[in-house]
Computed example of a mutant assay.
Amino acid sequence: MRIVIADHAPDVVAHLKLIMEELGYSATGYTDGETLTQALLRETFDLVILDWNIRCKDGASFLGWIQNTLPKAPPVIIMANRSAKRDITDALTAGADDYITKPEDRAVIAARVNALLRGASGGGAFDTEVTYGIYHMNRLDNSVTVHGKNVLLTAKEFELAELFFKHADRTLSREFIMQTIWRTTATLATRTLDMHISRVRAKLELQPENGFRIFTVFGYGYRLESFARQASLTDVKPRD
């Protein structure tokens, strides 16, 4: 999971970044709205922790920008010094998913972040089997059934395929994929990513007639496109 933190105070950014890394998440920090804007346009994140009074943009404007600009808006936690009910209501109404009043205990911050990320990952995150269109995935043996044919994937290929299915119709940066699957963003490993995607595409026959296709977004990453006539994200459901 990748988390981006934006707060006008560098010490707050450092504090939150440390908490996120202790939880096992990858965290990036900024101290103004402009650099955060560029990061969100350039990279893919699972969660935004945003100071309500971030420099260059106020919290309400930033929430509106996230909702209206990003292809798939990540959940947002607003952190602010204000604890009045009106302030909390304003932030939630503007689109925030949660509101934390500063200063807050480390354990509380960790619990709120974990709870929000669990919710964002979908209710079927811990099912042993899940279906995406014609693809039936078994998490116990890393296998996928397509048209009754069992396809055995390596552990990394399975993780990669599931990552794309979970984020269908969303462009994923190479950095996001490398961090999520290989826990690294090292550029020397990009060849590994390309080979794995090629194998997943071939093994699962990811073609329009099967409801999904993977294509390269030049200079950025990859995208799994779904076709509504065959399968869509609304088809995703756990198997009985």
Rank of each mutant, 00 (worst) to 15 (best):
I49N: 07
V108N: 04
H147Y: 14
G64Q: 01
T180K: 07
S83G: 06
G211K: 09
K17S: 07
V144M: 05
A9H: 12
Q230K: 14
I54Y: 04
T187G: 06
A228M: 07
D194V: 00
N150L: 15
G123M: 05
A9S: 12
T190F: 00
I19V: 09
K57Y: 14
L116I: 06
D58S: 01
P74E: 07
R82H: 08
F62K: 04
A73N: 12
T131I: 02
V113H: 02
R170V: 15
R213L: 10
K72E: 09
T128C: 12
L23M: 13
K17A: 05
F45A: 01
K166G: 02
N114I: 12
I49L: 14
D141M: 07
M1R: 11
H136I: 05
E22N: 14
R183V: 08
Q207W: 15
E34C: 08
D240W: 01
L188T: 03
D87G: 10
Q207L: 15
A111E: 10
K57E: 05
D51T: 02
Q230W: 13
T31W: 09
D98N: 15
H8E: 08
R183T: 06
D11N: 10
L153S: 01
R86L: 08
S173G: 01
E104I: 13
I77N: 12
F164C: 03
A186L: 05
N81I: 07
M20Q: 15
V113L: 05
E129S: 09
S143R: 02
D11F: 10
E209I: 11
A115V: 08
V217E: 09
G219A: 13
L224K: 05
T44F: 06
I54L: 12
P74A: 11
N81C: 06
D98L: 10
M178H: 00
N53R: 03
R201C: 10
H15P: 02
S226F: 14
T28I: 13
P10S: 11
T37H: 10
G59E: 08
G124Q: 03
E43I: 10
I19W: 04
L92W: 10
E205F: 15
Q207V: 15
P74N: 13
S232L: 07
F126K: 07
K237C: 08
D98F: 11
L140P: 02
D127L: 12
A94L: 11
A186F: 04
H167W: 06
R174L: 03
C56R: 12
L18M: 13
F176E: 09
R2E: 04
R82M: 09
N68H: 00
P71R: 07
Y222H: 06
E34W: 06
G124V: 02
M1N: 06
R82G: 06
M20D: 10
R183P: 01
D51Q: 06
I214A: 00
Y99F: 13
P238S: 11
E162L: 09
I134E: 08
G122M: 01
Y220W: 15
P75N: 10
A107C: 12
C56D: 11
N210H: 15
G95E: 12
E34Y: 13
T154S: 03
R42M: 06
G211E: 05
I88W: 05
A120M: 10
W65E: 02
F165D: 01
M137V: 09
V146N: 11
Y220K: 15
N81Y: 12
V48G: 03
W182Q: 03
A84V: 09
A14I: 12
Y222C: 04
D7C: 00
